[in-house]
Write a protein that binds this DNA or RNA. Structure first.
Length: 161
DNA sequence: GCCAACGTTGGC
DNA sequence: GCCAACGTTGGC
């Protein structure tokens, strides 16, 4: 039986943590901490090792999908929720019942050309994509296989120019 | 810096 | 359970 592969998109502000930061991290891997949105958390809980991730730079110029990462460890509690000095500290979360989880992701590759948001908006195949929905703020979101393929096809075209 | 869209909180 | 107030996200 074929292994089911899942695709996701994860947002990060490059001023805070960029794809270059990920590439420079030990083992090119990082714990995706700080997510404090239940829907995003639930998507992380659904992730499997080997799932592929589009790495997106928000609050960037221009906002873009900048590369690919992959899930290397499934969901476990985010330690920053219990750290009083951390900006993501959540006083309502109990250590015996952690509210927030994270996954580990590893750098796969950086696109030679970032796939800018307005470029993606022009793609017929991406019409239903969560990222392009007006008012969409989800920082962790699922990506359909067709969407994944379309973006990679676009990337190959851009890189070849 | 602006502001629309969204999620969360808490009074009732 | 409703919903106003508030804080945050993120494109522009």
């Amino acid at each position: 039986m074929a292994v089911e592969r899942h695709y996701w998109l994860m947002k990060s502000e490059p001023d805070v943590f960029s794809i270059d930061d990920l590439a420079r991290s030990p083992k090119k891997t990082t714990a995706w901490d700080g997510v404090r949105n239940y829907q995003a958390r639930n998507y992380m809980r659904a992730m499997k090792v080997g799932d592929q991730v589009l790495f997106y730079h928000s609050n960037a110029n221009p906002p873009s999908v900048v590369g690919i990462a992959e899930v290397v460890r499934t969901a476990y509690p985010d330690a920053t929720q219990f750290d009083k000095r951390d900006v993501h500290y959540d006083p309502a979360s109990r250590p015996d019942q952690p509210r927030w989880d994270l996954v580990d992701i590893r750098f796969v590759r950086k696109f030679t050309v970032p796939m800018a948001l307005d470029l993606l908006r022009g793609r017929v195949g991406l019409k239903g994509m969560e990222l392009l929905r007006k008012g969409s703020r989800l920082s962790v979101q699922p990506v359909r296989v067709a969407e994944w393929n379309d973006i990679l096809q676009l990337e190959r075209g851009q890189a070849g120019k």
